[in-house]
Design a protein around this nucleic acid. Structure first.
Lengths: 191, 191
DNA sequence: GTCTATAGGAGGATAGAC
DNA sequence: GTCTATCCTCCTATAGAC
């Protein structure tokens, strides 16, 4: 019962974080969306920052589940592309929470959250291993440090190009994903 | 005299917008940075949104000046790469103001600002012309709609990869620019 | 046009009853 | 654990003297 209620809270937080971002989201909105009083929220989560952290933990878990669903025979590059596709689909669906990278109290709460940090490290390790394997087999360029490739992939989760193209209304979500995946892996230059 | 004072204000706003973003920036900080009282600020600019708009007008003007300084013999692709370089250098130097794309009162103020809108349209037109020329001469891939290319270039102005790499401390600003320029134009895949 | 002082309101968090 | 009612801080914006 408690778990169900808290899942509903975190889901509402997730949507609001995706829609408006952390700063613009208010705790009153979260309470209204869940349909409970604000004070009740604070019985479940001690602060707004912890609400956001719970949403991040949730999305990290979903990423790990997605990784588990990937076919074993896929190449490292296939896995990287699939991961980026999954991330962009989440964002286009309005389910990718977005946090400001500069907010320090939020950063502190996140980095103190063991579940989030463990998930982040696990996800980064898996992506990192695929990146190095893909560079070893020659599918990803060796000109870039693996960490730069990792950051570039992570950045697709908050790429404004996605929402701009979506707002334009000229392309379906699937087309947008293909487009941005193309610019990301193939580059803007003609091949 | 008034122009000098206002230029100092806008410069302070520009720095603060680059450092903390619009939401986290307070008018008190701006006043403190300039060294005048907050009420005096409001004699020059009617609102916080107008302060941000002035900073955006300034950066747009600087972009137009930069375009004017480009050599006439440069190819369209050269110009595009130079523009992205300039943008990223501005961001790495802490001089690229960053605004939340979802704030509606800010959007309204920006879109009501003729000087900003004219600058934005002029910049977009110049970039758009280079993009189409580069696609015509075969240097930029024709697989992407010109508007998607334009968005992709604009997005380098707020690319988190830049600050992440900068925070890592492993690369100089020049190396970071080369790296991200490489991922942007050449793609992650090996060529 | 600069200042001090303050209005006005939003929003995070808590008190205390049930 | 849920509610209502409130506290308190921060921040934008303005009043009014000089």
């Amino acid at each position: 019962m408690l778990k169900v209620r808290e899942e509903a809270i975190v889901q509402a937080v997730n949507r609001l974080l995706a829609e408006k971002g952390f700063d613009a989201m208010t705790v009153d909105e979260v309470a209204a969306k869940v349909g409970i009083a604000k004070a009740s929220l604070y019985k479940h989560f001690p602060s707004k920052e912890d609400l956001a952290a719970a949403a991040m933990v949730r999305v990290m878990r979903r990423a790990q589940e997605f990784f588990g669903s990937l076919p074993a025979e896929a190449s490292p590059l296939d896995n990287l592309r699939a991961a980026v596709r999954w991330t962009m689909a989440l964002k286009l669906a309005g389910d990718m929470p977005s946090l400001p990278s500069q907010n320090s109290s939020l950063r502190a709460t996140l980095m103190a959250n063991k579940e989030y940090m463990d998930g982040l490290i696990d996800v980064s390790d898996r992506l990192g291993a695929w990146i190095e394997a893909a560079q070893a087999d020659g599918s990803i360029s060796r000109a870039f440090p693996a960490i730069a490739v990792l950051y570039t992939l992570y950045a697709r989760a908050c790429d404004p190009v996605l929402e701009f193209l979506q707002m334009g209304g000229q392309h379906s979500d699937a087309e947008i994903i293909d487009l941005v995946l193309g610019t990301c892996f193939d580059g803007l230059n003609a091949r």
